[in-house]
């Protein structure tokens, strides 16, 4: 293969895998929005929390980041559950903007809390597989990036099983479609909402853990990812889970191809431009299924 074609394939493959991580983050955000109509401005900061949990466990106990998922994910769920139960639920039916502000404040508390706890200095872990790659027909793929992609698949698969194969999952869907109706049918929606927020946060935390071997942790790392999550969910339609997955993959590919062929200088702008275009032209997302209750 000539080097240009090879580079194209490699860029596509890596874009797809990066998009997988975006999808994981976006799914969490979209799930929360779908059930509670809350745009979680702290989403990226929860991701940062995940990174620091894994970092801490690695530095203190030499726990492999992938193993630390077993601790980080439940912690993330618990954190999200508590936040919804004891903070956001108290906002009740107040203006949508108040939940936006509350999560914005929460994000600032999380990132600045991490700053106080861990310092501003970026920290990375140096595990043996961090730079390991393997070749697939000439295309070179990073091992941790592939693991992150597979992790996304697994997490989303599990979420599907949960939503469509369990009693609680049915309650979640019912609450998403009609909270009042679900309440009348005996669903404890307060509880369901806390579970959903917990799940959404757990997704962000898992993404953070999966990213740690690829990147480095610093307290304000979340800002960028919150924005990516917004882009992903708006592309797919807020509250639309399959849409968020496709949205993530699309964003990953747009960014990679844009950076490769157009200009790396505007890498972050490509997603934002598409985001604005979708917002203005198709606010329900690329794939229809209107969630107009906003």
């Amino acid at each position: 293969m000539d080097p240009n074609t090879l580079a194209l394939f490699q860029t596509l493959a890596q874009g797809l895998l990066t998009g997988g991580i975006y999808a994981l983050i976006g799914t969490g955000l979209s799930l929360i929005f779908g059930v509670m109509r809350v745009i979680n401005f702290a989403h990226g900061d929860f991701l940062a929390v995940g990174m620091f949990i894994a970092l801490f466990l690695f530095q203190r106990f030499h726990l492999d980041p992938y193993l630390s998922l077993l601790i980080a994910a439940p912690l993330g769920f618990g954190l999200g559950y508590l936040v919804q139960r004891f903070l956001l639920a108290r906002l009740g039916d107040r203006l949508e903007s108040s939940s936006l502000l509350a999560t914005l404040g929460l994000g600032l508390i999380l990132s600045n809390g991490l700053l106080l706890g861990f310092g501003a200095q970026p920290q990375s872990i140096n595990v043996a597989y961090a730079t390991q790659t393997f070749k697939l027909g000439g295309v070179q793929i990073s091992l941790p990036l592939l693991v992150a992609g597979l992790g996304t698949l697994l997490a989303i698969g599990l979420l599907n099983l949960f939503l469509y194969r369990t009693e609680l999952g049915r309650a979640v869907r019912a609450t998403a479609q009609n909270p009042l109706g679900a309440e009348l049918q005996g669903v404890n929606t307060t509880w369901v909402q806390a579970v959903v927020f917990g799940l959404g946060v757990a997704f962000a935390v898992v993404a953070g853990v999966l990213l740690l071997p690829l990147l480095y942790a610093f307290p304000t790392v979340g800002e960028n990812y919150t924005l990516k999550a917004f882009v992903v969910t708006v592309l797919g339609g807020l509250g639309n889970l399959p849409g968020a997955i496709v949205g993530g993959l699309i964003l990953g590919i747009i960014e990679s191809l844009g950076a490769y062929y157009l200009s790396n200088n505007y890498r972050d702008a490509y997603g934002l431009v598409v985001f604005l275009a979708v917002l203005l032209l198709r606010p329900e997302g690329l794939f229809g299924r209107t969630v107009k209750r906003v």
């Binding site: 745009i39 702008a269 604005l276 203005l280």
Partner: peptide
């Protein structure tokens, strides 16, 4: 004119996007 058609949080999201695009243009 472009974004006031959007209700609620959508305007907030779009304002972030517009400002960040302007930022990148000025930088580059």
């Amino acid at each position: 004119r472009l974004t006031f058609g959007l209700r609620g949080s959508y305007f907030t999201l779009s304002s972030i996007a517009v400002a960040l695009i302007i930022r990148l243009v000025v930088i580059n």
